[in-house]
Amino acid sequence: MTAGAERPEAPLKVVVAKPGLDGHDRGAKVVARALRDSGMEVVYTGIYQTPESILRAVVQEDADVLGLSSLSGAHLEYAKELGELLRANDRADVLFIVGGTVPPEDAEALNDYGVHAVFGPGTPTGELVDYIKANARRVGSA
């Protein structure tokens, strides 16, 4: 069963979030705009978010996708905590993706924390859109 079957017409809902004190949001805003232009409903949290406030946005918006953007080197800590919060609040069905300055060797640890995909600098937004369309609302299903 997929959630998509229950609401076939509803556009995908994405929360784009900036955790912590990192203000570099050029990438987050470009991604938000590209996803909106592809037909998704996008909420950008703005900067200075805590894991708790990001979880709140995911729950309140009933999001299908959470995109976390980090250029401050603290992606492991924030992703770990968010992964735990999503599971603890029954939202492990959210497609959880991370972008920013993330060294490639961190991808494995991020996967362990519940991150489904990592998109580094230079990723074409089309690739991101395709990935989300192919994988959102399918998390955890066969």
């Binding site: 912590g20 004190l21 990192d22 805590t50 401050s72 080197g73 603290a74 800590e77 924030y78």
Partner: peptide, 22 residues
């Protein structure tokens, strides 16, 4: 680091994980 830039101390409950990072 970001806590210093934004006027928080290194023992801040949330932001301390960014101490000395960038």
């Amino acid at each position: 680091d970001l806590p210093t830039l934004l006027g928080y101390d290194s023992d801040h409950e949330v932001y301390r994980r960014e101490v000395g990072r960038i």
